[in-house]
């Protein structure tokens, strides 16, 4: 079924979006409806098709099949209009390392046809926002990894796009720098009121998104608001460590439901509310195991359990 009516309240709309590289099916029939203003996260491990999706939506590669509209324009037939409406921060840097911070922003601004006065004004604002004001005249090669990523994001929004694509904005950064980048993204969202399409393979980082989709081998396997997805797993994840776990798992499964092996840990979902029963379970296991703990689930667990329920279901049928 095809919808030919353009829904203007949707920033991004994809139907059956597919990308094939020879025999590799990188993106497999993606359907997306992302309303204007939403903070959307496409989450999945390396090689799951996130970058290919962004490249199709930003008109840099052609879909093998399916259609997509970005800012109301068809990515196949109105590439220029799409590119005028979007900003893209690529997984790898797009900066010129031999130019200074300000020169990079000037170059990007001119490429988007901004007048010099506007470029200067917005550069100062953005550098202020990202804490790079003092680095203005330094060459990019002298910036730290985190500063460089921040500048790359500033570069991607200098023309005030309606829709911002961020491909793994925190990849390769240490934890403090990742936090900074998330803070910058948050500031941008409130200042510019843009629709943000973000990808990351640090799944648990995407909790602040309005909506996330998990992608695996090019297919969306789960989609929804992060907190709903997390809550649907249950109240706690129970992790049990020890030797000869398989017998134990067999005896616990009737009570705790399916088990998922995360490395050498056996994980169960605990859907009850009552911590007392967890304490009892711990007492019961006693020294049969080397450790047992429980913790709140996160988005990483959502993805792990998608796999497990799939496996579990195929095992049953």
């Amino acid at each position: 079924m095809r919808r030919d009516i353009v829904d203007t309240s949707l920033a991004i709309q994809a139907e059956g979006l597919t990308k094939r590289y020879g025999n590799t099916l990188a993106v497999d029939g993606l359907n997306l409806d992302i309303p204007t203003g939403q903070f959307f996260g496409l989450l999945g491990p390396n090689g799951s098709g996130k970058t290919s999706t962004i490249h199709m939506l930003s008109t840099l590669i052609r879909p093998s099949q399916g259609t997509a509209r970005v800012a109301g324009h068809d990515v196949k037939h109105a590439g220029l209009q799409v590119r005028a409406a979007i900003g893209v921060v690529f997984q790898e840097s797009a900066l010129d390392r031999t130019l200074s911070v300000a020169e990079n922003l000037r170059f990007a601004g001119l490429l988007h046809n901004l007048p010099i006065a506007q470029i200067n004004e917005r550069s100062s604002e953005l550098l202020e926002l990202f804490g790079l004001k003092e680095k203005r005249h330094q060459p990019v090669s002298e910036l730290s990894g985190g500063q460089r990523r921040a500048l790359d994001i500033a570069r991607g929004v200098i023309h005030r796009p309606q829709i911002l694509f961020l491909d793994e904005p925190t990849i390769g950064l240490d934890v403090p720098n990742r936090r900074n980048i998330w803070r910058f993204i948050e500031r941008l969202r409130t200042e510019l009121n843009v629709t943000v399409f973000l990808t990351t393979h640090y799944l648990e980082e995407a909790v602040d998104c309005d909506k996330v989709a998990f992608i695996k081998q090019g297919r969306i396997v789960k989609i929804g608001p992060p907190h709903d997805l997390i809550d649907s797993l249950g109240a706690y994840i129970i992790e049990i460590e020890g030797e000869n776990l398989s017998a134990l798992i067999a005896s616990l499964s009737p009570r705790l439901g399916p088990c998922f092996m995360d490395g050498d840990k056996a994980c169960f979902r605990f859907t009850g509310k009552d911590i007392a029963s967890l304490v009892m379970l711990q007492a019961e296991l006693g020294d049969k195991v080397t450790g047992m703990r429980w913790r709140r689930p996160n988005l990483n667990d959502v993805f792990l359990w998608v796999n497990e329920t799939e496996l579990w279901q195929t095992r049953k049928t």
Binding site: L60, L80, A84, I86, F90, E92, A94, F107, L111, R155
Partner: peptide
């Protein structure tokens, strides 16, 4: 190679 071409290809002109 250095990736600067990304800035050029994402800009809104042919």
């Amino acid at each position: 190679e250095s990736g600067v071409m990304r800035m050029l290809v994402i800009a809104p002109f042919e």
